[in-house]
Every structure is written in C-alpha cells, then in structure tokens.
Design a protein around this nucleic acid. Structure first.
Length: 671
DNA sequence: AAAAAAC
C-alpha cells in the first residue's frame, strides 16, 4: 500500500559500494570483455571467446590474427572475404566508366551521378596496399602480450592517446552528480566550453595508421553513389558460403551453454567531445530547414556522436557508430540521411508512386515508430515523405502510402519483406540503409532477414550501423555489405560520465513480490523489466491489486495495446510500465527515473540497454536489479562485462534501502 | 532459454 516518499537518504551512499569488493577487472586494470585468460567470458574452454595457448601459435600472415579473431567473432565470414582479397592481391576496382549498369539511384540524372557529386572523385582506399585490415578491424593481435605492453587496454593501441582515455577505472576521477551535466559534452545542449580540458583536440584523423582516410575539412572529398564499389566486385556470395551454418551452430551452442557471448570490441575512432563541440549542425553540412527542425526538436548543437557521424554520412561513407544509450543516435543518422536523400532527389521530388530512396530498420515496432517521429519531422521540413512499414497492423495504410510514393521507409524486417514479396514495396532504388541496434539485428533470427533485405537494395547502397553496444557481432553484415566503413565512438563514455546510478538488491525470493511493489510505489516513472511475457502480466496484476496503476508491454499484446500502453507511460497516465525486453532497446520516454529489473538480464548487452531507458540525454536515473543470493556471482560477472560498478545491498521487506531508492528519486523529480 | 520480427 502506498507508502514511501521518504526524502533522499545520504547521497554518498549511492557511490560507495557497501557490498562486496571491487570487481576483478578494476584490480587487474583491464577492461571486461577483453579476450584474455583472465577475462570473464573467456575462461572456460567451452566459451567462444576462449583462447587456448595454441591459439597464438604460428603466424601465417599479416592478417592472420585478424582472421582468427574473425573466425571466433564473426563465424568465419570475415576471414573468407579477406582471404579472397589477399589472394587477389588487389582490392577490387570499381571503374565507373566500365560499369555496364549504373546504380539505379541516379536514374533520373542522365549520365551524371546526382547524389552528392559536388566533391568529385571518391578517394580510393587500396586495401591490398597495406590497409589490409580496413577500419573495421584493425585491432592488434589478441595474444596475452598485447595487453601488457602498456597499450591502451581498450585496444586503441595509439600511444598518443595515453593522455586521454586510459579506461583505467581506478585512476579516473569520480564525478559527483552535482558536477554532471557540466563536464559532459553530451549532457547538456549548452555544450560546455570547458569540456575535455587537457585533452588533445583531435579530429577524425586516424592516428597511427597513415593509410586511413582522413577527414580534415581540407582534404575531404565527397563520394557519389557511382563511385562506390559494386557489391559484385566483392567476393562472391557462393565463395562465402555456409555463413548461416556457422551462425546457427555457434549460436545454438552458445544458447545451450547459457553463455553470454562477449564479442570483441570494435575498433573505432574515438571522437573527443572537446574536438567537435565547436561545429554547429550547419557547419557539419546540413541544410537550413533541417537545422531549423533540429532546433525545434531541441537539438540546437550537435551531441558528440552527431558531430562525429554527420559529415562522413553526408560524404557517402558506410559508417558504424557506437554511442551510449540516450546520446542522440537517431538524429546522428536521421539528419544526414534526410539531407542526403534530398540532395539525391533534386528536381524530382514528389513524383507519384516513386520508390523509396532510404530504408531505416529497427528491431521492434515501437522503435520504428519512434524513429519515424523524428525522421518524419526532418523529412517534412524539406518536402520528403516517410512511412512506417511494420507488422501487427493492417497493411492497407502502409501500402496506400507506398503507392503515393515515399522517400524514406522506416520499419521492422518482417513486414518490409512481406510487402516487398507482394510487390508493394520496391527496394531497388534504396541508396541508404540504416540498421538501428545493429548488433541486435545481427543476432540469430534477425540476421538472415537482414541479409535478404540488404540484398534487395542497391548493390552499392550506403550502410549505416548504429548501436550503443556495437561490437563485432555485426561482422557478418559488415563483411558482406559494407565497404571500407568508418567506425566511430565517443571518447570517455564510461560509468563515471554517465548519469545512471546502478544498484543491486540481494533479496530472498519470498520477499520479491512485496519488494517490487514497494519499489514501484512512487511518484516518478518506473520501468520494470521481466524475463517473460507471463511474468510481466503477473506483475501488472500484482501492482494493480496494490493500488498502483500499471500497464504491460510485451509481444503477446496486440499492437494496439502495445502502442497504447507505451503511450500511457509517455503521457503520464500511468507511472509504471512492466515490459519484456521488447522495451529494452531504443525506446525513449523522457523522464523514466527508475528502472527495476525484476529478473536480472542474462546478457551484459541487455543490462546496458535496459539501463539505458533511464538517464537519457544527461538526466539522472537509477537502475535497480533484484537478485537472489545464488545469483550474486553471475551478476558480478555480468556487471563486469557491462563495465558497471554497482553496490550490492542485502534487502528485506521494509528496509531503508528501498525507501532510499524510491524516495531519492521522488526528490530528484521535484528538483 | 526468451524475446523479437509477417500473415
């Protein structure tokens, strides 16, 4: 029954682990997820990330280590493609003149590429001449030695970065919450000027790898669609066979073993907030209308991930980007995508029945809807049209919109394939594809539909892969569909620069129901995650019985209920949403300040994404995970992989710690 | 093992 509202307990407690000791990787000065003997996830010979001694045996060639990593991480695809290239000696050429068929993206433009042709020729990156690893995969050998030689443990391997991101948790300053929002470039639209003092202003240059294309303004060159290599110049599909077999086998093995697969971290250009904060959206190359619309959306100056990706996307590059949850990824791909479609459509907009030029794919319908809300505004401002294509609703409206002609399709894989097969959605002119939550879209069940869809768009369509947990799990897609992708992440995105407090409550199972009720009995918006649909329904009932209005969100509900229930939380008509992992990724509700994990997640990525429903765009939030005693070890290991340091508290019904969690949040909301 | 994604 309604209780709590106790004002904040001592703040300091929130940052002082009172349970357990520091996690092992802190002591070891090593990042979780690093492949090594001591790494969680690679200790067991049964684990996919496990590297036995013989693993580092005979060097076979310069890309052998990568090859090996690829086999473990990408189920062999990547190595295949590499092998072909290496054997061929030279990277496939894409000779524009010789091309029998021009990409259809430029169909209306006569002989000239229409899509961003101002910049002239695209620079050629000859992989065979030394950049044999590409941007996607240039991490050094993963042998035990590479960790100990003083290099950045994260694998940047660039000595000049030592002044900045050491990722050495024990040495990093801790920030009080009061300071937050002032020291983060992305926490505040006011873009603090003092951010990152003492760091090098480092733009998008590939330090230490001279062969990487640079993105200084001066020597930046634009690339048209025509300049892009055609996919049939790449290794043929039959030569890359049995990918699916690999996937299925590896995945099912992982499932059988209940292994939380830790993929190798993607190597990325770390974009320093301080180095990009000067640029405005207009500076980055976006047009007036879009810039104005962004302002209307509350985006007056670019967040770091946006500052990083807008330019390369406008240049036509394939881009992989990792930015923490709530860091503004939708705009990071949405704005340049609209700009680019606009440029490619000059003079031929609004033709009846025109086929879409861009496709944005999301793993859930709610996320597709949400992306559309942002992208549609941007598109409208320049006279472009978007439509959603997702399942669970009658297809009539979607088909009707497509008949009239749309420029940008946003949707989920199933319905998109369905309409395409019915001949009601023509993907052949799609020149830009975005995969939001790309790592998730590369998982079993999603990967093959994604591959089928990507084969339907233009061979040389630009691909943009975004996720807060982007890792090498996307390798299967990258190898087949991306060309020389640029990889970005935002520097310094660590727990210390986050606005999320993490707590773990160790409870008795018999207390669980009552503790859950007391946690959601509060003023702010609370999102509760369960492992199963049934349990989420059960909890809703339980909360309602306790007089707390709550709604559920899971895949057993029809789409109308799903949409309505989420809306009710957004509108504030209820304060409690109980959801399965359908709501784990991407969903943005402005002011969720407490996430309760009624069931602990099994995977660290799930932890990251669920947690990311709070603490968005620099706002404060708390994540509480309930576990029983016997799960402590597993929880500790998962937190290590998620790179989260959270205090464990024993809790019983009515304990102060519960009041502290709920009461403090209520106080924050008032503030 | 569960969840998501088409009808």
């Amino acid at each position: 029954m309604p209780k709590n509202k106790k004002p904040a307990g001592g703040r300091a407690q929130n940052f002082e682990p009172r349970y357990g000791k520091k996690t092992s990787y802190q002591d070891a000065k090593r990042r979780p997820g690093q492949a090594s003997a001591g790494t969680a996830g690679s200790k067991s010979p049964k684990h996919r990330g496990f590297r036995a001694a013989e693993d580092s045996a005979p060097a076979k060639g310069r890309w052998t280590e990568q090859d090996r990593a690829g086999r473990a991480e990408a189920r062999g695809i990547r190595s295949h493609a590499r092998g072909d290239r290496a054997a061929g000696g030279e990277r496939p050429r894409f000779d524009r003149a010789g091309g029998a068929e021009r990409p259809r993206f430029d169909r209306a433009g006569g002989e000239r590429p229409r899509f961003d042709r101002a910049g002239g020729e695209r620079p050629r990156f000859d992989r065979a001449r030394g950049n044999d690893r590409g941007d996607f995969d240039r991490r050094g050998p993963r042998g035990a030695d590479s960790r100990r030689d003083g290099q950045d443990v994260r694998g940047y391997g660039r000595p000049e970065r030592d002044d900045r991101a050491r990722f050495d948790r024990t040495e990093r300053p801790r920030f009080d919450r009061a300071d937050r929002g002032n020291d983060r470039g992305d926490s505040d639209r006011r873009a603090p000027r003092d951010a990152g003092n003492g760091r090098d202003a480092r733009e998008f240059r590939g330090t230490g790898r001279t062969e990487r294309p640079r993105f200084d303004r001066a020597d930046r060159t634009a690339r048209s669609f025509d300049d892009r290599p055609r996919r049939d110049d790449r290794p043929r599909r039959d030569e890359r066979a049995n990918r699916s077999d690999w996937n299925a086998a590896e995945k099912s093995k992982a499932h059988q073993e209940h292994v939380d697969v830790v993929h190798e971290r993607l190597q990325a250009e770390a974009v320093d907030a301080a180095s990009v904060e000067q640029a405005s959206f207009a500076d980055l190359g976006l047009g007036q209308n879009i810039v104005r619309t962004l302002e209307g959306l509350g985006a007056t100056s670019p967040f770091p991930i946006q500052a990083a990706t807008v330019r390369p996307i406008l240049e036509g590059r394939d881009v992989l980007a990792r930015g923490r949850t709530g860091s503004g990824k939708t705009i990071a791909f949405g704005a340049p995508l609209v700009e680019r479609v606009l440029r490619g459509q000059a003079g031929k907009r609004r033709a009846w029945g025109r086929s879409p030029q861009a496709l944005i794919l999301a793993p859930t319908r709610e996320l597709a809807l949400q992306i559309d809300r942002t992208v549609q505004e941007l598109a409208q401002s320049v006279g472009l049209f978007t439509t959603q294509v997702y399942g669970g609703v009658p297809q009539g409206r979607q088909v009707g919109a497509l008949k009239k002609g749309v420029d940008i399709v946003i949707g989920t894989p199933g319905r998109i394939e369905d309409l395409e097969k019915q001949g009601k959605l023509d993907l052949s002119e799609v020149g830009i594809v975005v995969l939001d939550e790309a790592d998730h879209m590369s998982e079993l069940g999603f990967l093959e539909p994604m591959q089928r869809i990507l084969r339907l768009v233009q061979d040389d369509a630009q691909k943009l892969l975004f996720s807060a947990t982007l890792d090498r799990e996307v390798a299967a897609l990258v190898d087949e569909f991306l060309v020389d992708p640029a990889v970005y992440e935002v520097a310094g995105e660590t727990q210390e620069t986050s606005t999320i407090d993490h707590r773990v409550l160790v409870i008795d199972h018999r207390d669980k129901a009552e503790i859950l009720t007391s946690l959601v009995d509060r003023d702010g918006k609370t999102l509760v995650f369960t492992r199963t649909r049934a349990y989420s329904e059960m909890l809703v009932e339980q909360f309602e019985d306790a007089g707390i209005a709550a709604v559920a969100l899971h895949g057993d509900l029809n789409q109308a209920k799903r949409t309505r229930n989420l809306q009710r939380l957004t509108d504030g008509k209820v304060n409690v949403l109980v959801a399965t992992d359908v709501a784990a990724r991407g969903i943005h509700v402005d002011d969720i300040d407490l996430v309760v994990q009624a069931d602990a997640p099994d995977e660290y990525k799930t932890y990251t994404h669920r947690s990311g429903r709070t603490g968005r765009a620099g706002r404060a939030g708390t994540v509480v995970t309930l576990i029983t005693r016997q799960r402590r070890r597993r929880m500790t290991e998962m937190l290590e992989r998620a790179e989260i340091d959270a205090p464990f508290d024993e809790a019983r019904i009515g304990d102060d710690v519960l009041e502290e969690i709920t009461g403090r949040q209520a106080a924050n909301v008032d503030a």
